[in-house]
Write a protein that binds this DNA or RNA. Structure first.
Lengths: 179, 179
DNA sequence: TAGAACTTTCAGTAATATTTGAAAATATGA
DNA sequence: TCATATTTTCAAATATTACTGAAAGTTCTA
């Protein structure tokens, strides 16, 4: 097998597996595959090119491309002299990470926080053992979610350089932990 | 409405919503509901109690309880004089977090790393523009995943106290960032 | 060792999520 | 303005995932 064949099979595998991984990240398989395809494409691609490469329908390609644009992971590019839209993925891995982090915080942590605050409030007056345990647990969860929310917020607005610097410092400190 | 009614409705809502949130975390709705129920129960519960509370079948209750035990989020408790098994959830929020973090790293980051290393290797000899872009992107992603894997590993083995301490230090440093 | 208590499995069914394909809407340009 | 290119929508079809209920398996006790 030559280098080009190797590359082609690696490319196919990357797209397929990235799609499978997407599922466990709460992103649909096809959306992750479209994202994978665009991330490794040196040029922006049209809807038709995505359809052909991934063997999917127009409706499917369209929906997922626009969903990715909605996440901020993909941008629409207009080529001069061309009437159709082309799509280009954000390729900077740290930027991709911070976008996903922000989106997941918004979709997962923020609603949890609302729920927990509401539940803590509605159970603060109850006197039974069961009720007290519930109230306490809601407060613990709320406190943790607030903390996680803050950390996520900070990290997601950090540039890559400082992030690595702080992480290194953080990772370097840990082995010395005593308590 | 009195305090007990408030509490009961809050409890129902917590279980229902925690289940819905579970979906976006890649955990099945019922599994998250069982987890929610056990987290707020002062006493360990039997399979039958879970079935009754959540109105689900025996098979469903059984499967999800055992899955939670597999994750390490729930422990089996044997009561003296009782023949059946009871189930008790880990209630310490930080411990729950570290367990989930480890499990997700194992299921999501580790397989991604394997894929990326393989794809980078198989594309290192290719000369085309497309191929070089692919190889480069695989390396970038690989580097980031290794970093994320290390950070996750460290955090997941940290105790709550030191974690908050380091996070505070970290959060405190950020506003001063210049670069 | 039989029978009761409890746990586990799994084929069939139900619920949810995704995809297709074609029609409708919109934009472009001569 | 009309014809054509392109995008958008969405009802129906398909695929995926989760749940039920009952039967089979296991463990315990007398």
């Amino acid at each position: 097998m030559n280098a080009t064949e190797d590359f082609e099979s690696a490319k196919d595998e990357f797209i397929a597996q990235w799609g499978a991984l997407g599922s466990s990240w709460g992103i649909s398989r096809t959306m992750a595959q479209v994202h994978a395809l665009l991330m490794i494409s040196p040029e922006p691609l049209s809807t038709d090119q995505c359809m052909a490469e991934l063997q999917i329908s127009r409706g499917n390609a369209h929906t997922n491309l626009k969903e990715l644009v909605g996440w901020g992971l993909v941008k629409i590019v207009v080529k001069k002299g061309e009437r159709k839209e082309f799509f280009e993925a954000e390729k900077d891995v740290w930027k991709v990470f911070t976008i996903v982090l922000r989106e997941r915080k918004r979709r997962e942590i923020d609603p949890a926080l609302t729920l927990l605050q509401d539940c803590a409030e509605r159970s603060k007056a109850v006197k039974t053992v069961e009720g007290k345990a519930f109230h306490h647990q809601m407060q613990e969860l709320e406190q943790f979610c607030k903390f996680a929310s803050k950390v996520g917020e900070k990290i997601s607005h950090l540039k890559y350089g400082p992030a690595v610097k702080y992480a290194d410092k953080f990772l370097g400190l840990l082995p010395k932990q005593k308590d």
